[in-house]
Amino acid sequence: MTGKDIPGLQEARDTIPAGTKINVTFLGNEDLEMRVAAAKAVVEAGFVPVPHLSARRLASREQLAEFLARLQDVGAAESVFAVGGDPAEPEGPFPDALTLIRSGVLQKHGVREVSIAGYPEGHPDIPGDVLWQHLQDKADALKEQGLATVVLTQFAFDTDPVVTWIDAVRARGIDAQIRIGTPGPAGIKRLLNFARRFGIGANAMIVKKYGFSLTNLMGTAGPDRFVSDLAELLAADPVSGDVKLHFYTFGGLKATSEWARDFVASAGEARS
């Protein structure tokens, strides 16, 4: 959710299981008060906030410390997501998430768990070998500092590269929980626009596997087929380890939470 999504959170809260992690973004057009208010709303609704720390948007160590202190005041500092961020040039001393993690500021404000980014289908602006080195370095740095690690991925449409990537993560000795990014139900055009923005494969074959067609862009699509196929593949994969889902709520918090509730219910009925 963003700082503007507190009304959407209130609308969706009855369909979200207690204790669910909800990420709170760090957008350039929102300020400290909006970010803290959103994190506080997550706590008060009975969920676990995961505020984003956008390294390249932070102007100073003091700004990072102030943000974390404010989060700590509202009980929202234990879990954070450290990410590089969008600006081409850093606005302060943190050119990337690794520098932020190594700063020593996180532990001073009660941070216990840090999510770091993973890219099963690569990144449009960062070579694959650099992505792997960054992932390894961040995982190692967090382990050295005694902080729990979660690898949170960009969303995907195709299960095959996701499972291949998970196996490659485990082969590097990274045993952290992996949360696979998954779009909640949303308009097909909107999903494809996000896919193009983040360099995610969206050709005809892949989107058909996901469950919609490029020739019919007027409807909505949910991740039913993706989630079912991924669960089946992971169940047969002896090295995948702890893997969960992270929903990108492109179609809204309520639509995503209702989809997840109904999907779990239908899966239970199918097993019985």
Rank of each mutant, 00 (worst) to 15 (best):
A38F: 03
V83N: 03
S266W: 09
T256R: 05
G199C: 10
F212L: 10
D229V: 11
H52L: 04
E258H: 10
G122E: 06
L64K: 04
T256D: 02
R112M: 12
A139W: 06
A236M: 15
A82N: 00
V151N: 03
L64Q: 08
S103M: 02
L230H: 12
G268H: 07
G92I: 00
E89G: 10
V264P: 04
T249Q: 01
T15D: 10
V105N: 10
R196F: 14
V243R: 00
R172E: 13
A39S: 10
H109N: 10
I116K: 03
D224S: 10
A45K: 06
M34F: 05
I188N: 00
R196N: 14
V151C: 09
P95W: 14
G84P: 08
L245C: 05
G222V: 11
E44C: 05
G122S: 01
A236K: 12
I206W: 04
F226Y: 15
L100K: 02
T256L: 09
G199K: 05
V24W: 01
A236S: 15
A171Q: 12
A156D: 09
R102A: 11
K4Y: 14
V151M: 09
L58V: 03
T25H: 00
G128P: 13
V114D: 09
E232L: 10
M1H: 03
L71E: 05
L100A: 00
L230T: 07
S266F: 11
E30Q: 10
L9N: 02
I16F: 01
G219H: 07
D125V: 14
D14T: 04
V114A: 13
A236F: 13
A117Y: 04
D31A: 02
D96C: 07
G110H: 08
E30L: 11
L64S: 08
D73W: 07
Q72I: 10
T249H: 00
E62F: 02
T182E: 04
R70Y: 07
K189F: 08
S213F: 04
P120E: 02
V48T: 01
H123M: 09
R102H: 12
E33M: 08
Q133T: 12
Y210A: 04
A77W: 07
L64G: 12
S228A: 13
A18C: 15
P124C: 07
G118R: 02
F194A: 15
A236P: 11
E232Q: 13
G19C: 05
V169F: 11
A97Q: 03
L98N: 06
A202E: 15
I126D: 06
L68H: 00
A38M: 04
G173R: 01
G184N: 00
F212R: 01
G122I: 02
R172C: 13
R112A: 12
